[in-house]
Simulated scan of single mutants.
Amino acid sequence: MNGRTVVITALTATFLGSLYFVYAPSTFPNMTKSASKAPSGVPGLEFKLSQISKNPPSLLVTLKNSSPGLSFTLLKWGTPLDPQASNLGVFQLIDAETGEAVKSDILKIGRKMPPSRDDLQEISPGTEHAIEVVLDKPWMPRKKPAKYKVTAQGKLHGVWEKPASELATEELESYADSPFSDRAFSTEEVLLAVE
């Protein structure tokens, strides 16, 4: 080999090695753990928001199960399906005109343990469940007309890959140990018009 071939080979090896370290998954778990966030969502489950009324401002919250064969049971606490969701900071609003976040009053709610069967939402394969959420709380700005960018974000507290009828009381008592507990969820942003 001549000198030129050695230099070209060395540069090529360096370049390919650099690409490997940039694009390959890390094999150093301690380095990736500190920079990574909680796992996101549950494969097959998705929350969606859409506006259904301008006065009072109301959203349709839809939970869709796109799995072809799995039923899921979700603990509603802290999700957009929670009857207290608008008091818990689940919905984030940004004034579309000013770009400022709307401050909401977040209540601390005591929950009866274990969760009741009424706190669960079962969703069969390929189906959707929808509820209406009226954003008429005292923390909502009184400015009218107005437009807000809205998302829903938080963490799931309990999700099981089975129908609610198959959940044992012990599983409800230890909902934090459910397979998808502590997974983050977020929706796409929707525009909410208020009149």
Results as ranks from 00 to 15, higher is better:
residue 2 N to T: 12
residue 4 R to I: 11
residue 4 R to G: 09
residue 5 T to P: 05
residue 5 T to A: 14
residue 6 V to W: 09
residue 10 A to H: 07
residue 12 T to I: 15
residue 13 A to C: 09
residue 16 L to M: 10
residue 18 S to K: 02
residue 18 S to V: 04
residue 18 S to M: 13
residue 19 L to E: 07
residue 19 L to P: 00
residue 22 V to W: 10
residue 26 S to G: 07
residue 27 T to S: 13
residue 28 F to G: 05
residue 28 F to S: 12
residue 30 N to C: 06
residue 36 S to Y: 03
residue 36 S to E: 11
residue 47 F to P: 02
residue 48 K to G: 03
residue 49 L to K: 03
residue 49 L to D: 05
residue 49 L to F: 09
residue 50 S to W: 04
residue 50 S to Q: 10
residue 51 Q to C: 01
residue 52 I to S: 03
residue 53 S to E: 10
residue 53 S to T: 06
residue 55 N to E: 08
residue 63 L to Y: 00
residue 67 S to D: 08
residue 69 G to S: 15
residue 71 S to A: 14
residue 73 T to S: 11
residue 78 G to Q: 01
residue 82 D to R: 02
residue 83 P to C: 04
residue 84 Q to G: 02
residue 85 A to D: 02
residue 88 L to Q: 13
residue 96 A to P: 09
residue 97 E to S: 12
residue 100 E to F: 10
residue 100 E to W: 06
residue 103 K to Q: 13
residue 103 K to G: 06
residue 104 S to W: 08
residue 107 L to V: 09
residue 107 L to Q: 12
residue 109 I to T: 14
residue 109 I to L: 15
residue 110 G to N: 15
residue 111 R to I: 15
residue 113 M to S: 05
residue 115 P to G: 11
residue 116 S to Y: 02
residue 117 R to L: 10
residue 120 L to P: 02
residue 121 Q to F: 09
residue 125 P to G: 00
residue 125 P to L: 00
residue 126 G to M: 02
residue 126 G to W: 02
residue 132 E to R: 06
residue 133 V to S: 02
residue 133 V to D: 00
residue 134 V to M: 01
residue 136 D to Q: 02
residue 141 P to T: 13
residue 152 A to E: 08
residue 160 W to K: 06
residue 160 W to Y: 09
residue 162 K to M: 14
residue 165 S to Q: 13
residue 170 E to M: 04
residue 171 E to A: 07
residue 171 E to K: 06
residue 172 L to Q: 00
residue 172 L to E: 01
residue 172 L to D: 03
residue 176 A to R: 15
residue 177 D to S: 15
residue 177 D to G: 12
residue 177 D to V: 11
residue 180 F to Q: 12
residue 181 S to K: 07
residue 183 R to A: 14
residue 184 A to Y: 08
residue 184 A to C: 08
residue 186 S to P: 04
residue 186 S to R: 12
residue 191 L to C: 04
residue 191 L to P: 07
residue 195 E to M: 14
